[in-house]
């Protein structure tokens, strides 16, 4: 039965923050056929003030990584936990796209990420010695190396066996990003990335792969957001030129 519309209602704000006003409820109850209405929801508007995209989770808030690293070296266990908590979701998100899926289960990937992160936190001197300025970019490299080694060893040992009638075309060693972009093209990206200088590499990784904002990157590795943006732009231009003519 088509219902009569009493739409829209624009009702006065209620005193309480959470519930619609009593008037509002009464109107809704009275209009049994009311389908949709505008109800004042006096709460904070969720963000969209600045950018077009939906703001993702922002685990990068709080103290700068630099500071946390400093505190960890001084033996502060809470700082270690804070850094772990900050890096883990970002790394997991990244790993979901960038590490092969067929070859491992989701929980294997999580284990690998967690183990890698814990080990890196226990051996911070390696990070220091690596000369890297960005802890996340450093972790990413360790993870990639780890997976590549694993894939190589799998190939040496004949790889995973598939049922005879399952002629799977998709390479079991491919990650989601590889499938989306194609393996060959992602390899070209990696190659061009590797040819950038260290700082540019790190900025590109943090921006493009981890999706950190310019201010977040600036807080991570120093410099101003504007400078970060300019460096990323230039790095991308250089990569395009490398790939295009290489």
């Amino acid at each position: 039965m088509p219902s009569q519309l009493t739409f829209p209602d624009l009702l006065p704000a209620a005193g309480s923050r959470a519930a619609p006003s009593p008037t509002c409820r009464r109107v809704a109850a009275a209009a049994a056929d009311l389908r949709a209405r505008l109800a004042p929801r006096p709460r904070e508007m969720s963000g969209l003030e600045s950018g077009a995209a939906i703001p993702p989770e922002r685990p990068m808030q709080g103290e700068a990584t630099e500071l946390l690293l400093h505190r960890i070296r001084a033996g502060d266990a809470r700082a270690r936990q804070a850094l772990y908590d900050r890096c883990l979701p970002l790394l997991l998100r990244w790993a979901h796209g960038r590490l092969p899926h067929h070859a491992r289960s989701a929980s294997d990937t999580e284990d690998l990420v967690q183990t890698t992160l814990l080990r890196a936190l226990r051996h911070l001197e390696d990070f220091q010695a690596s000369g890297s300025g960005a802890f996340l970019a450093y972790l990413r490299q360790i993870l990639l190396n780890e997976v590549r080694r694993e894939l190589r060893s799998q190939r040496r040992h004949g790889g995973a066996h598939l049922p005879v009638d399952d002629m799977e075309l998709a390479d079991p060693g491919q990650s989601v990003v590889e499938q989306l972009v194609s393996q060959e093209r992602l390899a070209a990206y990696e190659k061009a990335l590797a040819r950038l200088d260290r700082r540019q590499q790190e900025l590109v990784v943090l921006r493009i792969e981890f999706g950190l904002s310019y201010p977040e990157i600036a807080a991570e590795i120093g410099g101003s957001p504007d400078a970060v943006r300019m460096t990323v732009t230039r790095a991308l231009q250089r990569m395009a030129s490398e790939i295009g003519h290489g």
Binding site: G97, V177, V181, R185, F210, S241, G244
Partner: peptide, 20 residues
């Protein structure tokens, strides 16, 4: 060719965003 490369970079960036 440089435009093709930039498309590749755009694709990579979008793919990472998508998986996020």
């Amino acid at each position: 060719p440089e435009l093709a490369s930039l498309r590749l970079l755009d694709d990579v960036a979008r793919a990472f965003r998508a998986t996020g």
